[in-house]
């Protein structure tokens, strides 16, 4: 290549097009995405319109049934129930998560409080995020089972006479899942919100302080309004994460979502169909989960590109003003 270039006139070198290299560099991503994500997504959608499952030893279908799988899902009430479970458990974990994270983010960034030991606390609260969710759920199962250390302690300390049983208590099972989700994610949210607060123009806080605003007012009038886009981003991405909730309830309830399947989430339901090779129903559940996440993704996408569009527009206006000035 070097030899070719040295023979061509200088003018030509400048106009050498490197565009093909752009395609070369992005090709692996798009090839892999096409093969392992897009084509499977297409065949998942395709499958959702067929009756196709195993009943004992005999294979039923594949037979085209239109929207029958979707209708069945809603009619027998399974899907709405599991969607509701997912929503309730997610909310039970997420509400304390964002409130605690907001509180900690404000404390950690406060010049007034100047809290000591911040690196230590940040390290501790972020740690559960990296823990294997399935192992964490297994650990909670061991700790909170009827013969586990928590019940042993409560009984030895004469606080309880009978052990608390997950298998019997809807509230306990759901609360434990929510608690694990909370522990795994509040540290992460704290760090994201902190980054957001530190990105706010310091002069706004200084001005508020000069005006004699109380910390509470600074929070509601300055921090929160400026932080709105990031809070929105956190809420939507956490919702998308919540829809995917699987490892923790799956292991904690031993794949069943018991008692009374109140801990059966959408993805656990999907997994059940994948395990039993019910391609029609599995496909329909997948498509519904896809539609929910797609709607939420578009919101994230808009909030992220909005900033870029705004920046672009600003640049254009600036360029225009410069031209006019000339």
């Amino acid at each position: 290549m070097g030899a070719v270039m040295s023979n061509t006139p200088i003018k030509r070198i400048k106009s050498v097009s490197y565009a093909k290299w752009g395609y070369f560099f992005i090709a692996p991503f798009f090839l892999v995405y096409l093969i392992f994500h897009l084509i499977p997504l297409g065949s998942t959608i395709y499958n959702s319109f067929f009756e196709n499952y195993r009943s004992g030893l005999s294979q039923i279908g594949p037979k085209f049934v239109g929207f029958q799988n979707y209708i069945t899902l809603f009619q027998n009430g399974e899907l709405p129930k599991y969607a509701w479970n997912t929503l309730v458990i997610w909310m039970m974990g997420f509400v304390p998560q964002i409130l605690v994270a907001m509180l900690l983010a404000v404390w950690f960034t406060s010049y007034r409080l100047k809290l000591k030991g911040q690196p230590f606390f940040k390290t501790v609260i972020y740690m559960p995020n990296l823990i294997m969710a399935s192992a964490f759920a297994m650990l909670f199962f061991l700790l909170f089972s009827a013969i586990g250390p928590v019940n042993q302690f409560l009984i030895q300390a004469k606080i309880l006479s009978d052990p608390l049983r997950m298998e019997e208590s809807t509230t306990l099972t759901r609360s434990l899942i929510a608690l694990m989700n909370f522990l795994m994610w509040f540290g992460n949210t704290t760090i994201v919100l902190m980054a957001g607060i530190m990105g706010i123009d310091q002069s706004l806080f200084d001005a508020a302080q000069v005006d004699g605003a109380k910390p509470r007012h600074v929070f509601y009038r300055v921090t929160l309004p400026m932080l709105k886009p990031i809070v929105l981003y956190v809420i939507i991405t956490c919702m998308i994460g919540g829809i995917q909730m699987f490892d923790v309830p799956q292991i904690l309830t031993n794949f069943t979502g018991e008692p009374n399947r109140i801990a059966m989430t959408l993805v656990m339901f999907l997994n059940k169909h994948l395990q039993s090779k019910n391609l029609g129903m599995g496909g329909a559940v997948s498509v519904l989960i896809f539609l929910i996440t797609a709607a939420l993704s578009i919101l994230v996408f808009q909030s992220m590109t909005k900033e870029m569009r705004a920046a672009n527009q600003q640049r254009k206006q600036f360029a225009k003003a410069e031209k006019e000035a000339k």
């Binding site: 752009g22 998942t44 169909h273």
Partner: peptide, 29 residues
Amino acid sequence: AYQFRFKQAAFLFIMLVMMVPYQVSTLGF
């Protein structure tokens, strides 16, 4: 680093699929 015809489209595509969970295509996968 490069300027090419579908650059913007490629970027928008990746941004758009960023949040799609892998679980929804697992059946086909």
